[in-house]
């Protein structure tokens, strides 16, 4: 699909609108209408450009904003729920748990325990660069070494794979990494 500049511009504008959390939430059909799209074309073109439907995008960005607010630790779970545009704490909590894997309160507790730069966010939850996540446990960095050894060994044939197993230390952890590669 080739998007003309005008359509591209409107789809960028749509994304900005979906990021906003107004008092009265616009429906996806409202956003489409305001930007002169038919609902069908809007959903189809938005998804082709961004990889998410407008609804999926809105949910994802709200969960991301909620994670950020929870990690900052200055708001309660209920306040965060309202802040990111949910009206029901129950539906917010279950959606958050489904997406993130833990409840909002567990996420907040976990964020409190992490080391952070004053005024910033914990690197573990909001990395700027994976290889600079200096506060990760040593086991995380073992993965880098093992993956390097394993990728070399796979290219060089089975005899070197045995050596790779010895070099990487634990046989169990080697296989764990091996199966993920």
């Amino acid at each position: 699909m080739l998007l003309v500049q005008e359509t591209f511009r409107r789809l960028c504008q749509a994304r900005e609108m979906l990021l906003e959390i107004p008092e009265e939430q616009l429906s996806i059909a409202d956003v489409a209408r305001q930007l002169d799209f038919s609902l069908f074309h809007f959903i189809r073109q938005f998804e082709a450009l961004y990889g998410d439907t407008p609804h999926q995008f809105r949910i994802r960005s709200r969960v991301d904003q909620a994670k950020l607010l929870l990690a900052k630790g200055q708001h309660s779970v209920t306040e965060v729920c309202m802040e990111v545009g949910f009206s029901s704490l129950g539906s917010f909590s279950s959606l958050f748990a489904r997406r993130v894997g833990v409840s909002p309160s567990s996420y907040q507790r976990r964020a409190r325990l992490l080391v952070r730069v004053p005024g910033g966010f914990p690197q573990q939850l909001f990395p700027g660069c994976l290889s600079l996540m200096g506060c990760l446990p040593p086991s995380a960095f073992r993965n880098f070494r093992e993956a390097t050894v394993v990728s070399v060994s796979l290219e060089c044939g089975p005899s070197l794979q045995e050596e790779a197993k010895c070099e990487s230390g634990s046989r169990a952890s080697w296989w764990k990494t091996r199966t993920k590669l």
Binding site: L130, S131, A140, N143, F144, A147, K180
Partner: peptide
């Protein structure tokens, strides 16, 4: 794909 392994809750 050349490498894929977990780093915290993300992946390398």
């Amino acid at each position: 794909k050349k490498k894929e392994f977990p780093v915290g809750e993300y992946k390398w």
